[in-house]
């Protein structure tokens, strides 16, 4: 994270607010680990997809959903360690420029689920700067909850991809996703084709 004196937001609370602002038809893709645990804990929602492995692929999966379902909004949730593993996807998304994709990266500067080892963002790697340089011009850090809400509303209203960086606290995830891939797929796909 690059901002000094930033206001750290809580991942679960932020996800709950982000999901509450959506229509039931809109898709949410939760990245591996704590990100989708907190999405799961935000309550049952058929149009949520929970990624149990494939670290780094939340944004690519969301791009595929966005291309296949251009009339729905698609929100992707990812962690800093996961995004660092798949930075090339930012330039791919910039090239495709889907009108309906909003990405959120929760940056707590650590690999929280494996014991809190530091990620490169702890040493200054700036995921929003990287995204902008990858061609995602609408990439912004949220400076507090009110600023997140403002950026998120603008992202949902915008025709084009957006990325919001959320400086995130060290709180643990609130829940644990039910790890049944077939059930997750059936529920999500039925919601996407309804």
């Amino acid at each position: 994270m690059t901002m000094m004196n930033e206001t750290l937001l809580n991942r679960h609370e932020t996800i709950c607010r982000a999901v509450a602002a959506l229509d039931d038809r809109d898709a949410v893709i939760g990245g591996i680990g704590n990100t989708n645990f907190d999405l799961w804990a935000s309550g049952p929602r058929p149009a949520n997809f929970y990624m149990l492995g494939s670290m780094g692929l939340a944004f690519p999966i969301a791009l595929g959903v966005a291309l296949a379902q251009p009339e729905r909004k698609v929100v992707a949730l990812e962690g800093d360690g996961s995004l660092l593993m798949q930075l090339g996807c930012l330039s791919t998304i910039a090239i495709c420029a889907p009108a309906n994709l909003t990405m959120i990266v929760f940056d707590n500067a650590m690999y929280q689920i494996t014991g809190g080892q530091k990620t490169a963002t702890a040493s200054g790697a700036d995921l929003i700067g990287i995204a902008r340089s990858s061609g995602l011009t609408e990439s912004h850090w949220a400076e507090g909850a009110a600023d997140f809400d403002r950026l998120y509303a603008a992202a949902l209203a915008r025709s084009g991809p957006s990325l919001i960086g959320v400086p995130t606290d060290a709180a643990k995830a609130v829940g644990t996703t039910d790890r049944d891939p077939a059930k997750i797929r059936i529920t999500f796909s039925e919601a996407m084709t309804a």
Partner: peptide, 22 residues
């Protein structure tokens, strides 16, 4: 058609598309 930086990305994008009905 989407040209990808890595094959992993391509699998993710294609998986998302199929999950969403295409």
């Amino acid at each position: 058609v989407v040209v990808c930086a890595r094959e992993e990305e391509a699998i993710g994008i294609s998986t998302g598309s199929i999950l969403a009905g295409r």
